[in-house]
Design a protein around this nucleic acid. Structure first.
Ligand SMILES: [Zn+2]
Ligand SMILES: [Zn+2]
Ligand SMILES: [Zn+2]
Ligand SMILES: [Zn+2]
Lengths: 155, 155
DNA sequence: TTACAGCTTGACAATGGTTTTCGTTTTCTA
DNA sequence: TAGAAAACGAAAACCATTGTCAAGCTGTAA
């Protein structure tokens, strides 16, 4: 299982021990294509029969972020986490479906160094015809919107 | 005082009454070049001898955002507000000094529609030499950093 | 193996920004 | 001058996140 060993190596290289709980959290993140919250990870692990405290999930997230394996985002006012590649990059974050795309590091002509771009991805922009969710992008289930999903852009 | 009347007109046009408290909040925002929090507005108005409740400040912000006069951001995990121009635009938001720049509406070649770009502005990128705050950009005092100003990008 | 130091875990409490609640006050209109 | 609707504000509720602290685990040196 060289896959798991690689993660252990990347954790150890950052001075973070690959404890059982941290690996569980990492596995839960690896199973998701788009970022999820600490609460979601917590619920999934409990459902898998792996007892873990929510506090521990938060701390594991912090460790994984420190180790550079995971990046954190802010979606609808709460923190979400996703496993990212090792190359330096920034992100495109769709506020409609939650999808995150990695982009090559970029410094704009005006000198502004981009770290995160929030907006609406191509798949979610297209069907801007309907107010409801019918005809939503098929391959992207979309995350449930929360309170405060109004006209502002507080991501 | 045609200035004030213009604001009244823009508020009324959006179905938002220009009440005394709302105008006070708007004035407080107009005095600031970069976004500020509801708590800051609240404190400034109290200092000016204008009694107002924090709840009312929050609701005034919501109304002003609905009316399109004010845009909301998320800086260091809390909401900040700034008066914006009427043209459709998105924002460059510096996480170091809090500056917000309006940018012409933009859709990337890949179809992603940009709404907010978080990163570090040119003035703040340059002096990346010192860890401390000495030699910080002079013309931009910079806002005090808060908890969680770590490696992640949770804006 | 044992002992010890230090890291990890998790139940619980605390924090802090924001929203709800609800009774009072103000504003608009007839 | 009413009466209705909107706005106001103090206090409580909300909720994601962090702090606390006692118990458990891990690695290492004796
Ligand atoms: Zn990433
Ligand atoms: Zn999308
Ligand atoms: Zn704006
Ligand atoms: Zn800056």
């Amino acid at each position: 299982m060289p896959e798991l060993l690689r993660w252990h190596a990347r954790l150890g290289g950052a001075g973070v021990r690959a404890t059982r709980k941290r690996v569980l959290v990492l596995e839960a993140l690896l199973a998701e294509a788009r970022p999820i919250t600490a609460r979601q990870v917590h619920a999934e692990l409990l459902q898998r029969g792996e007892p873990i405290g929510l506090t521990t999930v938060y701390r594991a997230m912090s460790s994984l972020v420190d180790a550079g394996l995971v990046h954190a985002f802010n979606q609808d006012g709460e923190a979400t986490y996703r496993v990212c590649g090792p190359a330096r990059h920034h992100h495109l974050i769709c506020r409609a479906c939650g999808l995150v795309l990695e982009q090559a590091a970029e410094r704009r002509p005006d000198g502004f160094e981009v770290e995160a771009v929030y907006g609406v991805c191509a798949a979610c922009v297209r069907p801007a015809l309907s107010e409801q969710d019918f005809d939503a992008p098929r391959d992207q289930p979309g995350r449930p919107r929360k309170r405060n999903a109004g006209a502002d852009e507080r991501d």
